[in-house]
Simulated assay, not measured.
Amino acid sequence: MAFINGIELSRRFHFEFIEPLISRHFPNLRYASALIGPGSEVLGYDTKMSADHDWGPRVLLFLQEQEISNFDEVFQCLKSNAPDEFYGYSIDLTQTVITSLPRFLKGKLGMEISEGLQAIDWLTFPSQVLAEIVGGEVFRDDTGQLMSVRKQLQYYPQDIWLFLMASTWNRIGQEEHLALRSGYVGDELGSSIIASRIVRDIMNLCFLMEKRFAPYPKWFGTAFKKLDCANELLPLLLDVQLAANWKVREEALCKAYEYIACKHNQLGITDRIDEEVTPFYDRPFRVIQGSKIAQAITKSINDPTIHKLKEKRLVGGIDQITDNTDFRMFNQWSNSKNPTERNILRLVFDKILE
């Protein structure tokens, strides 16, 4: 059986099964149908291997909140009419989620965005979650609400974008000399570990520069290869990863630094920065002075809260603060209205702003 990618399979599932059935049994129902949320197929990276679990013909159905009483009735209708297979794939209707858009968004983001987003709220949203909301495909949207939300969340507001880039440059600035210092004293393992952290920061910076949400680790490298910069930068980053000693590692890092410095200048968001690496004080290490570039970027931030935050700490957002998978899911820990549970990271930002 030829493999059908998940988006195409779900598109067929909607137009050949879901929509005709709802039109017949619920002709007045206004709803949205889409393939968004978690799943490799939403990002377009699914393969035949993906079909072994949590994959198959499915959609998310968004009903109006006032029609909550229809949720179960619609599901039972789908269940009683579903074939055993669809284009050769078994159907698991538990994967076809029926919900409302506000409930879905609150479960993903931990807040009611209809009440308005403050700038700092964006820093609590993992880029993977945002990619899941704006990725995939919408098959039907009777009210236009789903498309409106996807447009609203399409990318970070300008000042958040600047703050995240500045924070990532600052991370590079904090560690660029450490990868060399550790190697200089014979700690090649430590040097390579720090260099790998820098490589990840450079890759994250490139996602930001090209205004693309970076996915979680499984697809991070795959998505990076689709960026405009990948053809030139990827070989340099591989040289960093494969370097046998710190001097070779430094040479590869320097080439990568100079490339992203040039790419930064092309954005035109600061005065022109020096694209060449320079010595780290009097030591035999070459760096790009990432923290100075960070400070240059922050000069363009206008939002008062983000401006105050950058004066205190360039901590970035949740993706810069931690790579812990469970913590990044903190918005989904509880449905409680207790802000201590729902807004842990927001409390951290509030503490910094004191």
Rank of each mutant, 00 (worst) to 15 (best):
F280I: 08
I273R: 11
L253D: 00
R272E: 14
I301S: 06
S291L: 10
N265M: 08
A230T: 06
L233W: 00
K312V: 14
A294T: 01
D274Q: 05
L227F: 11
A252S: 13
A252D: 03
H264Y: 07
I260T: 15
D303G: 04
T278G: 12
R249Y: 05
R272H: 12
K299Y: 02
D303H: 10
I273Y: 10
I306P: 02
K299P: 02
P235H: 03
E275G: 10
P279Y: 07
C254L: 01
A244D: 12
R249I: 09
Q266S: 12
R272Q: 14
N231W: 08
P235S: 04
A252L: 01
E251M: 01
D228Y: 00
D239M: 08
P235F: 10
L237T: 10
P279K: 01
L267T: 10
I301G: 06
A244I: 12
K310W: 05
I260Y: 15
P235K: 00
G268D: 07
Y259W: 12
A256C: 05
W246L: 07
N265F: 02
I273F: 07
V287P: 01
I288F: 11
V240R: 04
H307T: 15
I260A: 14
Q289T: 10
R249A: 14
P304I: 12
V277R: 01
F280W: 11
E276K: 15
K299D: 02
R283F: 12
